[in-house]
Design a protein around this nucleic acid. Sequence first.
DNA 1: CTCAATATCACGGTTTTCCGTGAAAACAAA
DNA 2: TTTGTTTTCACGGAAAACCGTGATATTGAG
Lengths: 215, 215
Amino acid sequence: MNTPFSIIIADDHSMFLDGLTSILAEEKSINIILTAKTGTQVLKYLRINTDEKIDLVITDINMPEMDGVELNAAIKAEFPKIKTLVVSMLEDAKKIKILTEANANGYISKNAEKAELLKAIKSILEGQNYFSPRIKQILMEAMFSAKSEPEISLSKRETEVLKLIAQEFTTQEIADQLFLSKHTIESYRKNLISKLGVRNLAGLTRYAVEKGMLE
Amino acid sequence: MNTPFSIIIADDHSMFLDGLTSILAEEKSINIILTAKTGTQVLKYLRINTDEKIDLVITDINMPEMDGVELNAAIKAEFPKIKTLVVSMLEDAKKIKILTEANANGYISKNAEKAELLKAIKSILEGQNYFSPRIKQILMEAMFSAKSEPEISLSKRETEVLKLIAQEFTTQEIADQLFLSKHTIESYRKNLISKLGVRNLAGLTRYAVEKGMLE
DNA sequence: CTCAATATCACGGTTTTCCGTGAAAACAAA
DNA sequence: TTTGTTTTCACGGAAAACCGTGATATTGAG
């Protein structure tokens, strides 16, 4: 018999953490070394116990302090030998894309059955990545739809001005705050309006609010 | 020894369901009769197997088809003897309030530890309701903060005009659409601005978006 | 019925936004 | 180093929003 695999689990919801632990405790080939509620806790552990061989980190995406995406990136940068499996509530195309680009070894949804979870873990521990058909499909769709979206990107200043505009400041007030000419701010207004494809202040404000740009 | 308690668990996330099942399987005094992914499944089961004695239904709030709040209400209406324990991701004051008013027997967050879950289940099965101190506190705060909010109410027309304003229509355009004078729309603008305590179009738009007035 | 809230309309004046058109300097990427 | 993006500034005119200060008619609740 081989030595059991060592894994770490990170999820901010205790109950889910306990549940996962309980499921995996039944597996003789798996040793749960640590359960954590934030990405930082996991990283801290890995940095201190460098001699301990960890095979896999299972992580949620949504966590306080350091989320699963960041944690995955950090692990891949500092401990490239450690495999990662991301488990998430939502099937977020963008995050999945980022994760695949950051070499995560697997991604499954919390909608997945216990059987699929075990299958994913086994695949990854054997050296194969695991992305369910459903996830692959979402990824593909995101690729195509991404092309239809012209991907509006705003510069730092543009973002800064837009925020202030949406916060009910007038052109003059913004100019004063940023120590710029009011003509400059007017330029930004115009650019933003054409760039974002809106008609007026209402459109600008709506964009800012919907993109969550205001605190 | 008493006969074990019969419980049903409902949660749309398989993995959580499996986890919970795994945790509770360790308890000899608990028999898991059914696990379901929607509230309707649970209700259907209860209606068919009326002879089977169910002690407790553990349910998530966020589920497709029929959520935990509705499920709780339905159970309390049709099967008042069955106890309910609601488990939720978020600590939503409004929903907690509704649930307590609908006589749910307990509410715990998924942030809760396994120990608290077991404590809640035991309390409820022994006939006592269980709401954690944290939940009680949130409930209290909601009560007070509800009173402090002056509750701005807009008339039908005001709402209608505000929606159009936030959708980038000008005063003249709105007047044309509603077959009103532009002066009338200007009056509404003024009233809305003072009523909502904002400075300009940006504030109006922000209010509309944040209140979810625009589909 | 009465009173308050709602809905409608009006005008003149000020401020702000919107539009077109242009351009120079700084900076980063190729 | 050339090229593209970002940041900065300028002017004039048109359009729209904002402000104050009204008024009248309808309507719904008490």
